[in-house]
Design a protein around this nucleic acid. Structure first.
Lengths: 203, 203
DNA sequence: CCCGCACTAGACCGACCGGTCTACTTGTGA
DNA sequence: TCACAAGTAGACCGGTCGGTCTAGTGCGGG
């Protein structure tokens, strides 16, 4: 019964707990001891699976990016939807996610990636690169959507890559503001304006 | 010669050093001991001026907000400029500021307020409120600019308050993305699209 | 049956954390 | 001249940090 799960249960328990804690607080603010207690695991086990706290964070990023890509991002960017509508779905998804946390814990955790990006970018280039990759993937989703909308004539020609980046930035910014206000409704109020962003092709 | 400066030199040295360190790294990552060393001050002096690390952070926020308001924000929102141009000035100001840091230290520190907002919002409501006030002031600058542009007929009628919030969010988001890429040029590339943001009046 | 290995348990480490405390220095007003 | 208070110096505090290490434990393959 020991090796029953691919990727042992202990490891995934640590990962899940760490994800929630890093998301709800910050990297520096959460200690390994605290993670171990919450995951009902001893230090020895922890360091058996993760060589360091930093490696845990890296694993959390990968784990969350995976869930994210297969979870609501995949849903929001549902190809059967008209492209422009997908943008609204993305905003809605962000809203409901944050609202659920706010209702449950009284706090808006914001975006794990955005949080970690601001906290760690100046301190750890490997983590920064990892976060960049996540943002690149998100931007590509936006870009594909915009490309399709342009191809269908739903939107005028534009620099879809730059506009996609702008939309991602806007979404992160809206979540940042909403978190600071601790009010998910901000996402609902400001989010839809994501569709008004536009960057023209260079010359 | 002791009380020559309003707000003693020691206090302002601590403040300046702490500001840079919090800005370039993070609140949790910077220790009081480290601040004291950089400011060439002893613990005793530190705690003479600041009751706690948290109060120092609060003071740093106020201090920076002040500099900010009287510094490039005041310049960028120069009332003698056509309103719409002020938005470009604001983006440019953000760019040059970040670029200067990047050239000097090799790292984009991003926006101190945005950084602290994401790090502390879920942990300290007083700090969150302080940061909110800073964001409110910034939004009001955007709003006044938009109001003026609408009054002059340079822009069509819109919900200027919501649009101002959206612009602030976008600016923060762009800076977040640029910091994650560690590339100030991102601000130059995405920033100008701030003018395309628009939220209509509700019904 | 028992060896080896993945895993767990938890004591332990030095460093550093934010914060306190006492002693001292020094300029100022009476 | 002297008392006082603002400010400085730095030893010290308990607690926690990330991380190490040794001693098991119990399952699987040979």
């Amino acid at each position: 019964m020991r090796h029953m799960n691919a990727e042992s249960d202990t490891r995934s328990r640590i990962l899940a707990v760490a994800r929630d804690m890093f998301h709800g607080r910050s990297y520096a603010d959460v200690g390994i001891q605290e993670i171990c207690e919450a995951a009902r695991v001893q230090k020895g086990s922890f360091y058996h699976f993760f060589p360091s706290k930093r490696d845990l964070a890296l694993a959390v990023i990968d784990d969350m990016a995976d869930d994210w890509a297969h979870g609501f991002v995949a849903e929001a960017f549902d190809p059967s939807l008209p492209p422009v509508e997908r943008l609204d779905y993305m905003v809605d998804a962000a809203y409901y996610w944050q609202k659920a946390s706010a209702d449950l814990e009284g706090r808006m955790p914001g975006c794990l990636f955005g949080n970690l990006a601001l906290e760690m970018s100046t301190r750890d280039d490997v983590m920064r690169a990892r976060l960049n990759a996540v943002f690149d993937k998100a931007r590509d989703q936006f870009r594909a959507t915009l490309d399709e909308a342009v191809a269908r004539g739903a939107l005028a020609a534009m620099d879809t890559e730059a506009t996609a980046s702008a939309m991602l930035a806007y979404l992160e910014g809206v979540i940042l503001l909403a978190k600071t206000r601790n009010d998910p409704e901000v996402i609902l109020r400001l989010g839809p304006a994501i569709k008004t962003l536009r960057i023209e092709m260079a010359h």
